[in-house]
Amino acid sequence: MLYRITVRNADGEKLEIVVEMSEDEVRALAEELRKAGYEVRVEPIPEGEEP
């Protein structure tokens, strides 16, 4: 499935990426980023919607 991941650092800089991963993989990635001090938001992209 496609997911949009938005990551912000302490300075407020934002990075937005689209990935194709399983829900478990995305959850693990988000958890690791949060542990590293980043603010993370994950949104699933519905099938048929443009990323």
Rank of each mutant, 00 (worst) to 15 (best):
E50W: 06
A28T: 09
E39T: 11
A36V: 08
I5Q: 00
E47Y: 08
D11W: 04
E13T: 14
P51M: 04
M21E: 01
E25R: 04
E23N: 11
T6Y: 14
E39P: 02
E43T: 12
T6K: 06
K14S: 13
V19Q: 07
E23L: 13
A36E: 05
E39M: 06
M21G: 09
G37F: 13
E23Q: 07
N9V: 06
L33A: 02
P46D: 12
V18L: 13
R27D: 06
V7S: 11
A10N: 15
V26D: 00
L15P: 02
E32C: 08
L33S: 01
E16S: 07
A10R: 10
V7W: 14
V42E: 01
L2A: 14
I5G: 00
E47L: 06
L29K: 14
A30H: 02
E50T: 10
L15K: 15
E47K: 10
N9R: 14
K35G: 04
E16N: 13
D24A: 08
K35A: 05
L2Y: 11
E32V: 07
E25T: 06
P46E: 13
V40Y: 02
V40C: 01
R4A: 03
A36N: 14
V7F: 15
E50A: 12
P44A: 12
E25A: 14
I45G: 05
R34P: 00
M1Q: 11
R27L: 09
E25F: 03
M1R: 06
E49I: 12
A30E: 05
I5N: 00
V18T: 12
P46N: 06
V40D: 00
G12L: 04
A28C: 02
E20N: 10
P46R: 09
G12M: 07
V42P: 00
A10G: 12
P51T: 09
I45C: 06
N9C: 03
R34I: 05
L15D: 15
R34G: 07
E39S: 10
V7R: 03
V42W: 09
G37W: 15
L15V: 08
K14N: 06
K14Y: 07
S22E: 05
P51F: 01
E20W: 13
G37H: 06
P44G: 11
A10W: 04
E39W: 06
V19K: 13
E13W: 14
E50Q: 11
G37M: 02
S22Y: 05
L2T: 12
V26Q: 01
R34S: 11
R8S: 05
R27I: 11
I5K: 00
T6G: 02
M1G: 13
E31N: 12
D24H: 14
E39V: 14
A28Y: 12
S22N: 08
E20T: 08
R34C: 14
E50M: 10
L15S: 14
G48D: 10
A28L: 12
V40T: 02
R27C: 07
N9F: 14
M1W: 06
K14M: 09
L15E: 10
Y38K: 12
A10E: 01
Y3Q: 01
M21V: 14
Y38G: 01
E13F: 14
R8D: 02
V7A: 15
G48A: 10
N9L: 05
R27W: 12
R4Q: 07
E20C: 03
K35Q: 03
T6Q: 04
D11M: 12
K35T: 06
R27E: 10
P44S: 10
Y3R: 01
L2I: 09
V7M: 13
D11A: 13
L2G: 15
E49P: 14
V19A: 14
P44T: 13
R34H: 12
